[in-house]
Simulated scan of single mutants.
Amino acid sequence: MTHVSIKELTKVYPGATIPSLDRLSLEIPTGELTALLGPSGCGKTTTMKMIAGLLEPTSGDVTFDGRSVLRDKPEDRGVVMVFQNYLLFPYMSVADNVGFGLKMRKKDPAEIKRRVGEMLELVKLPDLGDRKPSALSGGQQQRVALARALIVQPNVLLLDEPLSNLDAHLRFEMRDLIRSLQQEMGITTIFVTHDQEEAVVLADRVALILDGQMKQYDRADVFYKRPIDEATARFFGGHNFIPGTSDGHVFDCALGKLSLPEGATTGAGKLTFRPENVRIGTAADGQNCLTSTIADVIYLGTQTRLKLRVGDTALDAVVNPNEIESYAVGDTLPIHLPRATLWVI
């Protein structure tokens, strides 16, 4: 159980003029699961490798429970890192792979056998201990890699794109397993991902990193409801950004004067609302009602995406397909924007 503190962590690779990671600061409470989220090349894996001791930072610090670990060797940090390619020993059995860390620590063979059995039960592979990794599916290999990491009871568990090599149905299964194991064992866990849905499902909190800098660090729901800026909102699927001016109660823009929730930002800015928060029909309270024209209809199976126009302003909406069965491109569609779902950035 370890509290991880990352302070102004910076990495400039030799020959580079721009930092790969620029003054990243994070507080990761004991036992929490935190996602480092962002596109390829934003500095996520660089951060993880510096926590593990596989890279030396240019500046900044990493502390575990208040003590700097930068001078500690990787093997002395109590950190285990699971790579996206698993890196299982192909010539060893599953059981020997899982028990490898305990063997290196010279644990008693009987204890190793017992704990390997327990761990294989936890990852739902109780009968596969004698097989070689090559005889396993990708999902099973990922479970073995996870078991090998957890069996040594690390202070901090690092997962690098843990689900990226799995098929869609296996990703759902592994998400549940990773989350349940992490909660059961209480290990402080940091995982890297470029998939915002994966981060939202798994993490207690998410650190969004763009171009080497942290944009926002918060609970997953906050990124949807109160993004810090337009880049953050767009990364989480935001589409509607309307320039205008707020007095804290009303936003004056090309759509008209729209009522805002309490505590809204004042001054010039952009009004944003998620496509799924656009409502069809007229609001009972008469607030924020607009008349739109359907420019395009895109059927997505469980949802339908609408391209709408209100005057010269384009809007995106995501609705239940049943709601618009009687509508077509070119039709007039009444919509309203619930006040509570609006946010000024």
Rank of each mutant, 00 (worst) to 15 (best):
V250A: 02
T313A: 14
L26S: 08
M119T: 04
H239F: 11
L36A: 03
D160P: 09
F64I: 04
A317V: 09
G38C: 06
K73H: 09
Q140P: 13
I324M: 09
D285E: 10
G38T: 00
P90D: 03
A284K: 14
Q153G: 00
V297Q: 13
E118S: 09
G60W: 12
N155G: 15
L271S: 08
Q213V: 11
E8P: 00
T293Y: 03
D167A: 12
A147Q: 06
R23Y: 00
R115S: 06
Y91F: 15
P57W: 06
K106D: 04
L24P: 03
Q182V: 01
K103F: 01
R71V: 04
E118Y: 05
P109M: 05
C42P: 04
D285T: 08
G66I: 14
P275V: 04
I209W: 00
K49P: 02
K124Y: 02
V123F: 04
I335H: 14
G53V: 07
P74F: 10
A233W: 06
D331C: 06
F273M: 14
N165T: 06
S164Y: 04
A207S: 12
T304K: 03
V206C: 08
Q140R: 05
A317G: 10
W343P: 00
V344N: 06
P154Q: 10
P154W: 05
G139M: 03
H336I: 04
L128Y: 11
I6P: 01
L157W: 08
V201K: 14
F236W: 06
I151W: 07
L122S: 06
L158P: 07
V69L: 02
D252N: 13
V200L: 15
I18L: 14
L258Q: 07
V82H: 11
G38I: 00
L181G: 09
D195S: 08
V201D: 05
T17S: 15
A284L: 14
I51M: 09
N320L: 15
E184D: 13
V79K: 05
V278H: 13
R175M: 11
M1W: 00
N85L: 02
N277D: 14
A268W: 01
S5L: 08
K103W: 03
L290Q: 11
N85V: 03
L36N: 02
L136S: 10
T245M: 06
V278T: 12
D221V: 07
E32W: 01
V206L: 09
A149N: 13
T293V: 15
P90Y: 09
K215M: 13
I51C: 13
L159W: 05
P243K: 08
V94M: 02
I324T: 10
S93M: 06
I190M: 15
A254W: 01
S5Q: 13
G212A: 11
D252C: 03
L300N: 06
H336E: 07
E276V: 02
G263M: 11
T63A: 15
A284P: 00
P243Y: 12
D127H: 14
